[in-house]
Structures are given as structure tokens and as C-alpha cells.
Nucleic acid binder design. Structure first.
Lengths: 214, 214
DNA sequence: CCGCATCCGGGGCGATACTG
DNA sequence: CAGTATCGCCCCGGATGCGG
């Protein structure tokens, strides 16, 4: 294992999670929970399959990831974060904070996008304004990638995939959807930038953040 | 420039600061302030000089580092963080937090140590218990690397080098000094572990943290 | 299909030498 | 003092193969 050879906490941390792709593997496991190998590959477009296997081995040995064989009938391997791995959440959160301004200019020509990458930025700003009312569900399609928002316990969380009977549907470019969910633009500005919006407007205004000036 | 090609804030951040050595360069500039090239080399033992030059170029183009030619009589180049670069402080802080547990087992056989690597961990826990009393200075020598603590405005900050007339002197292995300054062990335990302690005991107890159980 | 292992080409990285 | 030049090597990226 390659190390910096420095008796410094930052260097020691980077010895374990500083390699290329490593923190992105952790990002996937934090955003989606326990994952199969194939799910990870899908959430890490561009990674070579041998590298993913390498990183999972390294992370397992570092005590960050644990591997469990799911029993039949599933009969697959599930990768999940250990408690030590979940403690990397603040690191990822601050990296996300620092990187958010870079998202405003939109994706590069051949950037890929995945719905789960909205989970953290969204739940950082979204709250349920009427926690005692019946829960609502909002389907989101950003660049065609499906996810849905659900109110629960005063907060809002995002799940990858399609909801059964959503109260509203938001559809548009990832940049616009992300700007809306993170409070950088409001519904009117989003609509002007290409957001399609169907269903219950009240449900939307219940969870969407107030846009703040930048 | 190599990118992950993902429209995700974390990936965009790592595109800029995820390369090997990059965050450690930022660590040095955060801990020491504006630095000369040679200072950086000394604070980054193990880095190849061409890599340091590369990283500084990349960081400059990313808007993280700025380069300024100091006027005569100094006549040298100073590298410093831009405001955007200083916003990486929370990322480094969380990385440090996560890496701290890895420091308890002490340095690896050929780990190097530099005094400025104590600056962040120390100032995270140290406070001046008597902010209205005259300021005190404590010389620290960890593995022979000199630095000194000064009280100022209710806080304590660490500077690399030697103080003129310190009120007390602490000398010992880096692991012990670090454990003491971060409140993992108390003065008695540190003394038992090889810490030498001279000078005004009252000054020490004024700034040292209460040890907490781990 | 899922979870890799193997092979191979290119370039990032590491060490040393050298220079204005 | 602040880099550039050079040269291996191994990490990384991409493709393919392969056992369960």
C-alpha cells in the first residue's frame, strides 16, 4: 500500500481514502445504502471494473466497507459502509459544499448524470413545511433519470426510481432541477429554464426551499 | 486535465483537488499561510519537485492558489490561498477529524513529522482559560520540531519556530505531544509516556485541554 | 447475469540530476 | 531559490475472458 509517510492526520486519512475513485465509491454507498457490485458500477460511470474491485478490497481492509453475502433467494453480494465508513459523511458533505458552485455552469459536453447524486444536495435544503399533514410524494426526472421525494418526520428524502402515485412530477435538465432543489432558483425561473411541472402545486410549495440570492 | 466526467458536485470538487498531493499542498498553505516554494517542499516531505510545480500550476489555474512576486529586498515568490482556496478549510478539517484516530498508534517506522501539522489539531481544542491575564507563550518540541503556542483573544494559536522567552517548554515524542494538545491524555499520562516539562506549570494548565476519555 | 481476474497500452507519479 | 529535464515504474483506463 502506498502511503505519504507523514505523521499527520490528514495524510493518514488520504492514505486510506485519497486514491482515485475511492471517495466516489463512498459517495455511492452513502447516497444509496448497501449496493451490489453492478449498482456501484452503474453509479460510477467511467470506472474500470478491475479498479472498482481493487477499491472495494482496499476499503474493506481499511475497515470502511464491509461485504456480506445475501442469503438465497437473493444470493448476491452486498457492499455497505461500516460505522467507520459512515463517519466519512462530513468529509463528503464539505467536498459537496465546495463543489456546488462548479455545478451552476451546467454539465460538460460528455458529463454523465445519475439521480442519486441529487440526494445529498437536495436533502440538505429541503424541509417539510407541514409535517403533520399527510405525506406527499414528488416524482423527479432530471435528464430522464428518475427519483422521487417523500416527506417523512419533518424532513424530505430522495430515493432513486419511480413512485407509484406521485402528487406532482418535475421534469427537466439536471442543472435546472438541481438549482430548484438547492434553492438557487425558484419555480418560475426553473420553468423559464426548461422545467416541466405537473400535478399538485401545493405539494411542491410545501417542500421546495425558498430561493436565495446568489 | 483529467476529469471524472460526472455531473456531480463531489466529482467536480475532486476533479480540481482530488489528485495525489493536492490537498496536502492546501494543508500546508492553510497551516502556515503564504509560503515560498522551498517552504512547501519542506512541509511536503516525499513530494517530487516537478510534482509540486505541477500541482501549484494546476491549483493556480483552478483559482485555489495565487502566486505573487514579493518586491525587493525579499525578491522571492510567495504562494498563498485565494479566498476560494481558504474555503477548503472545512474539507481539510473533516479529513483531519476522520484521520485523528489513526494517529494514536504512533508514527510508522519511517514516517516524517513537521511541527505545523499540529497547528490545526491543537487549535481545535485549546482555549485560553484566563483571556484577561497577560499572554503566555509555550515552546513545544515534538520529535525535535520546534513550534510555540501563544494566547491571543481567548484562543491559542501555534506558530512554527522558536519563541524568545517562553513561559514553559514541552519536549517529547510527537505522538505524546499531540495526544496532550488534543486532550486525549493529561499531563501526568504524557509525563509517563516520555514528555519532559519545564517552566511555569500554571501557564500550561491555563491552555491545555481537559483530557477526555476515549 | 454477477463479480470479478487477466492482459496490455499510456500516462501520472517518484527519484535524481541539472539550470537560470 | 524556483523551478525544468529526464527516465523508469507502477497506477490507471479499457477491453476481454471466465467461473459461479
Amino acid at each position: 500500500m502506498r502511503t505519504y509517510g507523514q505523521y499527520c492526520a490528514v495524510a493518514k486519512a488520504l492514505d486510506l481514502v485519497g486514491d482515485r475513485w475511492t471517495l466516489l465509491v463512498v459517495r455511492e454507498l452513502l447516497a444509496r445504502g448497501p449496493c451490489r457490485y453492478t449498482d456501484l458500477r452503474n453509479g460510477l460511470p467511467g470506472i474500470a471494473t478491475n479498479l472498482l474491485a481493487d477499491r472495494l478490497r482496499d476499503l474493506e481492509q481499511a475497515g470502511v466497507v464491509s461485504r456480506e453475502e445475501a442469503p438465497p433467494p437473493v444470493a448476491t453480494t452486498l457492499f455497505s459502509l461500516t460505522s467507520r465508513g459512515e463517519e466519512l459523511a462530513p468529509v463528503l458533505r464539505e467536498l459537496l459544499r465546495w463543489g456546488m458552485p462548479l455545478m451552476q455552469q451546467g454539465p460538460a459536453p460528455d458529463d454523465v448524470f445519475r439521480a442519486q447524486w441529487m440526494a445529498w444536495p437536495a436533502t440538505m435544503r429541503l424541509t417539510d413545511r407541514e409535517p403533520d399533514a399527510p405525506p406527499v410524494t414528488i416524482q423527479v426526472l432530471a435528464d430522464g433519470e428518475p427519483a422521487f421525494l417523500e416527506t417523512s418526520g419533518g424532513g424530505v428524502h430522495l430515493t432513486v426510481g419511480r413512485a407509484d402515485h406521485p402528487d406532482a412530477v418535475l421534469r427537466g435538465p439536471a442543472r435546472v432541477v438541481l438549482g430548484l432543489l438547492t434553492g438557487q432558483i425558484d419555480l418560475d425561473a426553473a420553468a423559464a429554464a426548461g422545467l416541466e411541472c405537473e400535478g399538485d402545486r401545493v405539494a411542491l410549495e410545501r417542500v421546495l426551499p425558498d430561493a436565495v440570492a446568489v
